[in-house]
Simulated assay, not measured.
Amino acid sequence: MAYYGAFYQSALHPLLLRINAYLMRWIRKKYRRLRTFKKAKACWQRVTRQYPRLFAHWAWTPAFW
């Protein structure tokens, strides 16, 4: 991530957003109470606020959803 982030940030950004989308899909499938997008979004925002460095790529991407 350091190399592409330094030289190809425009190419790296869509990939990192896709990783976030996969994480969101995993959360929605794993936890029945988070099946609705609204509840999953609230959970996502809470987790990203409480643990901003939980995943390494979160340092590179702005919070979305």
Rank of each mutant, 00 (worst) to 15 (best):
A42W: 15
T61M: 11
W44F: 10
R32V: 08
R18K: 13
A40T: 15
W58N: 00
Y4W: 13
A2S: 12
Q50C: 00
K38S: 04
W60Y: 09
H57D: 03
F37P: 02
K38W: 15
A21K: 13
A11K: 11
R46H: 13
K29T: 08
P14Q: 10
I19A: 07
T61I: 10
F7N: 08
W65C: 03
L34T: 11
T61E: 05
W58Y: 06
M24N: 04
F37C: 05
R28S: 10
L23C: 01
P14H: 12
Y3D: 09
K41H: 09
R18V: 11
W60P: 01
R33L: 11
W44Q: 04
W65T: 12
A40N: 12
R53G: 01
Q50W: 04
W65A: 08
A2K: 08
A21V: 11
L15I: 14
T36A: 03
H13N: 14
A42P: 02
L34K: 05
F37T: 09
F64N: 10
F7C: 11
F37Y: 15
P62T: 09
Q50H: 00
R53S: 09
H13P: 03
L16V: 15
F64Y: 08
H57E: 04
R35C: 02
N20S: 07
Q50M: 03
Q9C: 04
A6H: 02
S10L: 11
R28H: 10
Q45A: 03
A59H: 13
V47D: 03
S10C: 03
H13D: 11
R35A: 03
L12G: 01
A11P: 02
F7G: 06
S10Y: 12
P52R: 09
A59Y: 15
R32K: 15
S10A: 05
N20D: 12
Y22K: 06
N20C: 12
R53H: 14
Y31R: 08
K41S: 04
F64R: 12
T48H: 00
W44T: 07
I27Y: 10
N20A: 02
N20L: 12
T48I: 00
Y4S: 07
